[in-house]
């Protein structure tokens, strides 16, 4: 079951879309923000709210890397490792995250603050390297700025 606030946010979001199928991704974002990840009962609750088949919702959630089916840290960090960012040395940033926050790709920091994923392109290739923290975009990262940015997320 989703918290009441998540339900009302999803219902509000629904109004912005022509049909519930197109509101699925934003609804999943909302659910994940409130629950932390998307277990089966959260997917079922989203499916019920949107009047969509359960299996369809799970299919969509399982396809996208930004949705997690198991608990993770409080914030999801997706550091882009596609060509442009890689050329701008995003792999060096992975080392910084490992040293400073104890973060490894695919894992959660010991203090349960962050989960790190090697992300795919987020379309910020002119301001590389780039990353997503939850749904905030951060660009032009350096070893210093990445530490400073993540420090803002508790």
């Amino acid at each position: 079951m989703l918290p009441a606030e998540a339900v009302s946010q999803i219902n509000n979001t629904l109004e912005k879309y022509p049909d519930s199928r197109s509101a699925l991704l934003p609804a999943l974002y909302i659910a994940q923000r409130h629950v932390g990840h998307l277990p089966l009962d959260a997917l079922h609750a989203v499916a019920t709210l949107l009047d969509l088949p359960d299996a369809h919702v799970r299919g969509v959630a399982s396809f996208h890397v930004m949705f997690r089916d198991s608990p993770g840290g409080r914030h999801l960090v997706q550091l882009c490792t596609n060509v442009s960012c890689m050329l701008a040395a995003s792999s060096g940033l992975l080392d910084v995250l490992k040293e400073h926050f104890g973060l490894r790709p695919g894992a959660t920091s010991p203090d349960n603050r962050f989960t790190l994923l090697e992300g795919e392109c987020i379309g910020e290739c002119e301001k590389v390297p780039a990353m997503l923290v939850d749904s905030d975009v951060h660009t032009g990262l350096t070893a210093e700025s990445i530490i400073e940015i993540l420090a803002r997320y508790e």
């Binding site: 089966l40 299996a55 799970r58």
Partner: peptide, 26 residues
């Protein structure tokens, strides 16, 4: 399952080489 029976009980789950056909519960 989706188009003929209208049940949509199974779906493609995951992506790439880990893709599988699964019911909702797995």
């Amino acid at each position: 399952c989706a188009e003929l029976q209208g049940a949509s009980a199974i779906n493609v789950i995951g992506r790439g080489k880990h893709t599988s056909i699964e019911p909702f519960s797995g």
